[in-house]
Deep mutational scan, measured.
Amino acid sequence: LDITFHVDGKNIHVHGASEEVVRIIEELIKNNARAEEIKETLERLLR
């Protein structure tokens, strides 16, 4: 699975993920999660 995301100002662009995963990533970023935390969360979800 190949998910890429980047933050452009306040806009979060996520590619290669389901809508549910996109929402989770957006929440994590809004809550100022570190990249490592986001990665760990995604790995748990995608197991």
Score class of each variant (00 low, 15 high):
L1T: 10
L1D: 06
L1K: 12
L1G: 07
D2K: 11
D2R: 10
D2F: 12
D2I: 11
D2V: 12
I3Y: 15
I3F: 15
I3K: 06
I3C: 06
I3L: 11
T4E: 10
T4W: 12
T4F: 11
T4L: 05
T4C: 06
F5G: 02
F5V: 10
F5C: 03
F5L: 10
F5I: 10
F5N: 02
F5Y: 04
F5T: 03
F5R: 03
H6D: 11
H6G: 04
H6A: 07
H6W: 15
V7M: 04
V7W: 05
V7Q: 03
V7E: 03
D8E: 09
G9Y: 02
G9F: 03
G9D: 05
G9T: 01
G9V: 00
K10W: 15
K10C: 07
K10I: 15
K10S: 11
K10D: 11
N11V: 14
N11C: 08
N11D: 15
N11L: 13
I12V: 07
I12N: 01
I12F: 15
I12H: 02
I12Q: 01
I12L: 08
H13E: 06
H13C: 04
H13K: 05
H13P: 03
H13W: 06
H13V: 11
V14K: 00
V14P: 00
V14A: 08
H15V: 09
H15T: 10
H15M: 10
H15Y: 14
H15L: 09
G16L: 07
G16K: 06
G16F: 07
G16E: 04
A17F: 03
A17Y: 02
A17S: 03
A17V: 14
S18F: 04
S18R: 05
S18G: 06
S18T: 14
E19L: 13
E19C: 04
E19W: 15
E20H: 09
E20L: 10
V21W: 12
V21S: 04
V21K: 01
V22R: 07
V22A: 05
V22D: 00
V22Y: 09
V22M: 06
R23K: 10
R23T: 06
R23L: 08
R23Q: 09
R23F: 12
R23V: 05
I24K: 09
I24F: 09
I24D: 02
I24Y: 10
I24Q: 08
I24C: 02
I25R: 00
I25N: 00
I25M: 05
I25K: 00
E26V: 13
E26D: 09
E26N: 14
E26K: 14
E26P: 00
E26G: 10
E26H: 13
E26R: 14
E26W: 15
E26Q: 13
E27Y: 15
E27L: 13
E27H: 10
E27I: 11
E27W: 15
E27S: 11
E27K: 10
L28S: 02
L28F: 05
L28M: 13
L28A: 05
L28D: 00
I29K: 02
I29D: 00
I29Q: 02
I29A: 02
I29R: 02
I29L: 09
I29S: 01
K30I: 07
K30H: 09
N31D: 06
N31M: 14
N32Y: 12
N32D: 10
N32C: 04
N32G: 13
A33P: 04
A33K: 08
A33F: 09
A33C: 06
R34K: 12
R34S: 13
R34M: 07
R34P: 11
R34H: 11
R34Y: 05
R34L: 06
R34I: 05
R34E: 07
R34Q: 08
A35C: 07
A35P: 09
E36C: 06
E36K: 08
E36R: 08
E37S: 08
E37Y: 14
E37P: 02
E37M: 12
E37D: 11
E37L: 13
I38C: 01
I38H: 01
I38F: 05
I38G: 00
K39T: 14
K39P: 01
K39H: 12
K39I: 15
K39M: 15
E40W: 14
E40F: 14
E40M: 14
E40R: 14
E40H: 12
E40I: 12
E40Q: 13
T41E: 10
T41V: 12
T41H: 08
T41S: 08
T41Y: 10
L42Q: 00
L42V: 08
E43Y: 15
E43H: 15
E43W: 15
E43N: 14
E43I: 15
R44M: 10
R44G: 04
R44L: 10
R44N: 06
R44Y: 14
R44I: 07
R44W: 14
R44F: 14
L45Q: 01
L45C: 01
L45K: 01
L45H: 03
L46P: 01
L46C: 04
L46A: 04
L46E: 02
L46N: 03
L46S: 04
R47D: 10
R47Y: 14
R47Q: 13
